[in-house]
Design a protein around this nucleic acid. Sequence first.
DNA 1: TATCCAAGGTAAGTT
DNA 2: AACTTACCTTGGATA
Length: 321
Amino acid sequence: MTADSGPTPGADVSTATESGAIPLSEVAGPFDLQATVESGQSYLWDRPDGRMYESMDAHGGDAWYRTVAPPIDGVTDDPIAVRIRQREGRLEWVATDDPVPLVTHLLRLDDDLDAIYDAAPDDDLIQRAVDAYRGLRLVRDPPFPCLISFICSAQMRVARVHGMSVGLAESFGTEYDLGGKAVPAFPEPDQLAGRTEAELRDLKLGYRAPYVKRTAEMVAEGAAHPTEALGLGYEAAREYLTQFVGVGDKIADCVLLFSLGYLEAIPLDTWIQTAVAEYYPDCDCGTYAETSRALRERLGGAYAGYAQTYLFYYLRVRGDE
DNA sequence: TATCCAAGGTAAGTT
DNA sequence: AACTTACCTTGGATA
């Protein structure tokens, strides 16, 4: 029983910081940090300048982005707080520990993007989206924060989902010191499971509040964990994730694509469904599972999720056409 | 100023 | 299995 029942997070202060840079010449293919982090596929990064989502068409911005990542199997043993910015062909970083393996993992700098473009469908709409946002990479969000943040995304605008995610971190997460600035980590399962529905509603989660609480309880109690979907076939993995409260097919696909590395997953959100009606009407098979399958074929199979994410960003930012 | 509406859906109840 | 409906909240559109 910790005594942190209030909104004040425990302070976990580590004062040591390191800094350095990743030359982007070492990355296979192009990279666009802003497009990657502000495209609405991850809600776990924040801009200390407070201008998240305010200028999504401005390419090559050199803003700082920061996050705190929990330990990740095979990548990091401890939480790392990091901030990065893209500038002059390098990815500059300041962090509480060497973040290069972590950042490479989180932002999929190990993907050969040129090869993925080569495999992209010969499709006018997709090609336009790729041309518009060349360098946008998928992310590998930590599984639990990804799961919770996407439960929050139901019927919600991108900027507000990000706001909820930041609110959860500020209210219930552990703070880390990064060069003198306090950076809150996304709450761990027990840090959310212990909250009341009312506390979560105070953060404007609305009807998602009990979903978040119950899912956090399931993970905290060990009843299930999103990483247990790893190793299952794509559709079985999606089915596994829908056992979490507040998770249907769409949000399950988001977790598979944006956290667990199922690049064939294509979340059928309202934007993509509009695109199906307008550009791929023959892929509309009625049910989610069937339409998903048909569209996945159309968008190139194994990397269909990449096409989905370019399409989502392109349609959402450009309005239409 | 007041009202309406959609926002990266899901759960629960009906047919 | 497919179809309805309720659900929190808010910023922007419309009257």
